[in-house]
Design a protein around this nucleic acid. Structure first.
Lengths: 192, 192
DNA sequence: CGCGACGTTGATTTGCCTCAACGATTGTGG
DNA sequence: CCACAATCGTTGAGGCAAATCAACGTCGCG
């Protein structure tokens, strides 16, 4: 059960058997059906979740009720509303599973305790955020400087398995285009 | 000379006198004229820089030669091409001063040594990136879901001093609109 | 079977870009 | 100190990418 997450952690830092067991003791296992909400805006987000199995999305709903998808997570990804979690303030994001999923959660207190007892984890989480930051930056640049058809092609190339698991209108909401227009893009691209 | 950065560091972590002096010993002071390049795409970025005084911008140039501004830094901000720095690979970003500026730089080796000797700094840098990540996310959401006039108003509200120090066409490149259109937005807004 | 979720297609509209011309300001070399 | 070039912002005409609105087809599912 912990094998997968251990492999993940091991890529960045190396831990003794005791440290690893301590880490495990802080994790909470959770199994949920598809279309379950792990978080709604307004609630406090008291978890960072490692996705063992399944698929989920993190999204924002703007003033006009439009959804913006920020992340599609599959196996081996972490999901959370980081601002809410780390500052212990109300969430602005929604997190919802797209498939039946299994997760390992760590809450705020446990994470702080972990950092205190095994400071190496500071490094792990720093590197995780750093990667997320770079991804976010690339997306911002793409959104500003590339037209929608290319953003779609880049997306498919970067995440070839996602389109098979995530409905198309959600991908549109990730790319920042209307579902109708993404459909038109796809027919245009297939005709070449 | 170190007073300013010490205050900054102190907000997140508390250090002994020796730790602080060790930190100082790793910093390199640099003074540059306006329109100096601290980094060009293609070079390796071997610094994270704390801006003591002045103003600088971090930007990207896309395939068509268009600039996208990612950050306007003023006093008390950090600037770097994080992907290049942390992975020690060629930069994709440009960094250029907008005013005569004074900086404190730390290079890769020094930062690693610092983490090793004073692990508390892992926490500081983790929190720094975390904040940068949240900012980046807010910008992505705004770019996808808000029209340009509102993005501009939000920008002015969030960074009221920046428009006085940064040319308007650079702000346009930050917001992701053409300079002409930003000009039109401004005349429209002033007429109400 | 009928309903809701999802995708497609077409007509129309709009937000923003491109291109071009023109002031105003700054700065720089002669 | 002037002349001239850059740099920067403004304004207008025309065009295009993408949104909106509306109708329709299809599938999975209670």
């Amino acid at each position: 059960m912990y094998q997968q997450i251990d492999t993940y952690v091991n890529k960045c830092i190396s831990l003794s058997k005791e440290e690893l067991e301590y880490f495990h003791s802080l994790l909470q296992y959770k199994k949920v059906k598809r279309k379950s909400f792990l978080l709604r805006a307004g609630e406090k987000c008291d978890f960072e979740a490692y996705l063992v199995k399944g698929c989920a999305r993190v999204y924002y709903i703007d003033e006009n009720g439009f959804e913006v998808d920020l992340l599609f997570a599959v196996e081996d990804w972490w999901i959370s509303d980081l601002a809410s979690f780390s500052q212990q303030k109300p969430a602005t994001l929604f997190i919802e599973t797209i498939e039946d999923s299994e997760l390992l959660l760590i809450d705020y207190k446990s994470k702080e305790a972990l950092f205190k007892k095994v400071p190496k984890f500071e490094r792990l989480f720093r590197l995780m955020i750093q990667k997320a930051y770079e991804t976010m930056m690339d997306r911002l640049i793409a959104n500003i400087s590339k037209p929608a058809p290319q953003r779609y092609q880049d997306f498919v190339k970067k995440y070839p398995t996602i389109p098979q698991r995530v409905p198309q209108h959600l991908i549109a909401a990730y790319l920042g285009v209307s579902p109708e227009f993404l459909s038109k893009i796809r027919t245009r691209l297939s005709k070449t």
